[in-house]
Simulated scan of single mutants.
Amino acid sequence: MAEPAVIAHRGYAGVAPENTIAAVETAANHDAAMLEIDVQPAACGTPVVIHDERLEGTSARDGRPLTDSSGYVWETSLEDLRTARVLGTDEPVPTLAGLLEAIPETIGVNVELKNPGTTDLRVAESLPDAERDERRAVWTPFVERVIEDCEAFDGELLFSSFCEGALAAVREVAPRYAAATLVWDDLEAGLEIARRYDCEAIHPPRNAIAGTPLATTEYAGFSDATPEVDILEEAHAEGRTVNVWTAENWHQFEALAAAGVDGIVADYPGLGTDSSDSS
């Protein structure tokens, strides 16, 4: 069985200031196959790399403020974003263009379309016909800016989102690029969206993989009940890549690898190596 690709979550957020140039360097130095990053617009519309919608959003790891600034990302000037410091380090919030310049083209990039600049998001929903055009229109201007910044990067690119409107915009603006739907708490909705836009990949949470010890643990909107849908089997039967988020230790990585997933989003480098060394 082929080893799953290791995808550095925000640039190995467990050991580096997430979504920064320093995180890119960490991922490159530890042989990540792909780097996962999050993008939103600054007030001027320039795509910047940051996860939370607010600058003071807290890290999932220890509760520290994400940056030393505050306010919505999309209401903050590019100049102020460049002076914001991430997680108590000297690293600023980078532009997407600047971050891509720092990434070796041997490393793929998963660009997660996090927010187009609004609090009115439709997250992890399979939208009814009447609402799809409207939600695509909300995302299209930002997606156009993201694609423009990505065109200079010659490595592999994959665009993902929890929002159907974002995927609809990607398919309209740049159908040549691969796309992936991110799944939250509804496996059927995730598969439906992947089929609707013929997504090359689907990204479920780690406890959505049936037959693993993780499948009976609470995580990312799912209870500890056994998944009702075998999303790995169904996605593979349809020819889609399955990249799972997020492994935080080698036990989780080993369980997901044994299940046959194609990629594992990881917070720490070396999880795959550590798991094989443990046997």
Rank of each mutant, 00 (worst) to 15 (best):
A178Q: 14
A210E: 15
H30K: 07
S160D: 09
V93P: 02
L191E: 13
A102L: 00
R82Q: 14
L157S: 12
W250M: 14
D186M: 03
L191D: 11
V109E: 04
A237I: 00
I103A: 09
A84K: 08
E151F: 01
L100T: 05
A5G: 08
D133H: 13
E192K: 15
S126W: 15
G239Q: 10
S279E: 14
R176M: 09
T216F: 10
G155C: 05
T67I: 04
P4E: 09
V6P: 10
L271F: 04
V242W: 01
R132E: 11
E105S: 13
T83K: 14
I209D: 12
G71Y: 05
S161I: 06
Y197G: 10
I264A: 12
P227E: 03
A189I: 11
P4L: 04
G71P: 08
Q40N: 09
S126D: 15
A2C: 04
E151T: 12
I7W: 12
V242Q: 07
A84R: 09
A16Q: 07
Y12I: 09
A42Y: 01
D274F: 00
R171Y: 02
D224P: 13
P104F: 02
I202D: 06
D129L: 14
V170D: 11
F142P: 04
A166T: 10
Y72L: 15
R196C: 06
A237L: 01
I7S: 04
P47M: 09
H203T: 00
S278G: 00
D90G: 05
C44W: 01
A102G: 01
F142Y: 08
E75K: 15
P104L: 03
T58A: 12
L157M: 12
M1E: 14
E233R: 12
A84Y: 02
